[in-house]
Design a protein around this nucleic acid. Sequence first.
DNA 1: GATCCTCGAGTTCT
DNA 2: CTCGAGGATC
Length: 685
Amino acid sequence: MAARAPTPAEIERASVLRRELAGHDYRYYVLDQPTVSDAEYDSLFRELEALEREHPGLVTADSPTQRVGGHARTEFAPVRHRVPMLSIRTETDTTIAGAQAFDVRIRRDLGLLDGAPAVEYIAELKFDGLAISLRYEAGRLAVAATRGDGEVGEDVTRNVRTIATIPHRLATRTPPPVIEVRGEVYMARADFDALNAEQDRQGEKRFINPRNTAAGAVRQLDPAITARRPLRFFAYGLGEFDGYTPPATQAGLLQELASWGIPVNEDWRVVHGPAALAEFYAAIEARRDALPFGIDGVVYKVNRLDLQDLLGFVTREPRWAVAHKFPAEEATTQVLAIEVQVGRTGAITPIARLAPVFVGGATITNATLHNEDEIRRKDIRTGDWVVVRRAGDVIPEVVRTVPERRPAGAKPFAMPARCPECGSAIVREEGEAVARCSGGLVCPAQRRQALLHFASRHAMDIDGLGDRLVEQLIAGGKVATVADLYRLTPEDLAALERMGEKSAANVVAAIGASRNTTLARFIFALGIRHVGEATARDLARHFGDLAPLQRATIDELLEVPDVGPVLAESIRDFFAEAHNREVIRGLLRAGVRWTPGTPSPRTAGALAGQTFVLTGTLPTLARDAAKALLEAAGATVAGSVSKKTTCVVAGADAGSKLERARALGIRVIDENGLRALLAGEGEHT
DNA sequence: GATCCTCGAGTTCT
DNA sequence: CTCGAGGATC
C-alpha cells in the first residue's frame, strides 16, 4: 500500500459502500427485489475494490469483496443473513468445572453480588450436524440457508424441502409474517448405518461419518439425491422475525416452536446455578452413546431472553451462552516412524507417521510432535503405541504413549545432526525450543517455503503458484530467488508436468499482476524473521518507503511500535546481507512497485500519543473503520482499558471495558463524540 | 521479575 | 488451533 493512510473521507466512503452493497445483496438474493441495475451494482463494487486495493487496511472480513472465492465455488445462490448466524463460544475446560466457569462469568457480567440468588439457565444438547436457518413467511417455508461465514450462507431451499421432518407450513392459525428458525440438520446413527448397509449392497463407497454425510447431502446440487438421504432437524433458536413477540424465555420459545410442528429435541432442562449445569453435563455424557444421534457436548444458555439482550455480544459471540464439549474422542495407534520437516525459517519439526486410525470423524496418518522437548516430555519412540485425538476436533495430536505396549529395543528419538534436505548442520540455539537447519537459502526446502511465502495471499498474492509448481521450478533450476519469478515465460511453465498452455499463461499473468503491490505486502513477502503481517504494516506506516527502512539503524527501528531489540536486530541483519539486497534490487528492476507514503511515526498527528479503546458496536462505523480513522490521526488503538488509556469510544452492547473505564474515571465518548473530535482536531492540523 | 497479550510460525484433512 | 517468543505492563 501506499503507506499513505486513508483519509477520513475514504474510510467513510468504504464504510458506506459496504453497507450499500450488503443491502443490494439482500434485496437481490433474499427478497428477489433488486433496486439497482446490475451495471450500477458492478460500478459500486468496483469502486469499493479499488479503495481496498489502495488501502488494504480498509478491508473488513465482512466486506462484500471478500465473499468471492469463499462462496463462488458452489452453484448455490448466496443468502445474506439479516441477523448473523453466530457461533457459540466453546468452554475450553472439558471437566465439569467448565459449568462453574460459565456461571462465574455470567454473574460478573450481570453484576450479581455473592449473595444473589442462582441464575436461571437452560441446558440443551449440542447436536453434531450442520447449522441451518429456515425462513418462514406467513407460515410457509420460504428460504433455507446454510450458515456460511455467519453473514452470508447458501440457498439450499430445494434440498431442505425434501427433509421429511421439516414442516413446509407452520401448524398455527396465526403465523408471524416473518420468522427465521435456526437449528441443526443431522443424521441419526441408525439411519446412517442403514444407509451404509445399502451402499454395501449396491457396491458403492461407504460414508465416513453421519455429520459429513448430512452436510454433503444438504449441499447436493440435485435435490433428488438429498431426498434419498435420511436427514432430520432440531430447532434451537431464532434469527430475524417480524410481527412476532417471542416468549420471555428460551424454554418458552422451544415449547412454542414445538407447538408449531417444528422438531425440537426434548432433552433440555431449566436449572438454577452451576452445580445443576454440571449435573446435566455428567448425566448427558453418561447417556451419550445411547442417544440415537451424535452430539459433541451440551450448551448452556441464560434462560431469560431479556437478560440475554442485556448481556449482549463480545465480538461475534453471544455472552449469554457457551458450548461445553465433551473430551475429544481418543484412539490408539502405532508410530511407524518419526520424520522431520523443514520450514521457511529452517525450523525442524518432527512429525509422527502413524498407522492410519479413524478418530473424531477422520482418518489420521500424521501428527506434529512440535519439537524435541515435546517428544522427550512424552517419551515417544518409533514403534510405540500412542493415544491420539484431534485437538479442537481438527489438528491431530499425540496425547501419550501406552508404555506397556512398547516394543523391546525401541530407541528414544534423536534429532538428526544434518538437514535431510540439504545436509547442512542442524543447530539449536541456547534457550530455544526449535532446532534449525543452518543452510539458509542453500537448503531447497527453505527456498521452496520462501517462494511459497512470497506468493501467499497476504504477501504478493500470486494465484496458482502452489507447492507442486514451486518444487518443479526449483528442481529444474528455473528459479533460484523470488526475483527470478518475474522472468518466467509461458513457455518455461508449459514445459513442466501437469501444466497446460492455458494455466501456464494464467500463472505468468498472475505473477505480472503482482508487480503492483503495497509496501506492507512487499515487506511481509520478503520473509524477514519475526516480521509477520502486522509488523510489516507497522514498518510500512512508520518509514513510508523501502529506502529509509533499508538504511534504518537499530535505534531508528526501536522507535517503531512493537519493535524491540530482537526484531530490530533481525531486520537490520536482513538488509545488511548482500544476497538479500541483490534480490531486492532484482525485484525492483523487474518492475515491482508500490505507492510510497508519508512516513507517519506515531509521534505525528493531532491525536499523537493518545491511546483509545473501542468497545461495543458503533451505530454506523465498523470497528476497523473507527480504528483506521483514529490511527490516521496518530492515536494508538489498544485492546483493553488501562491507566494509560486516554479515552474509550463506546457503542451498543459495550461491556466490561466500559465498566473499567468508568471505574478508572477515563473519558467515555460515543460515535458522535468521536466524529466531533476527529473533525475538530482535523482543523488544527 | 512476573504476567498478560499479541504476533509469528507451523500444521491436518476434506 | 496451538505453541513459543517478544513486547508491554504492573
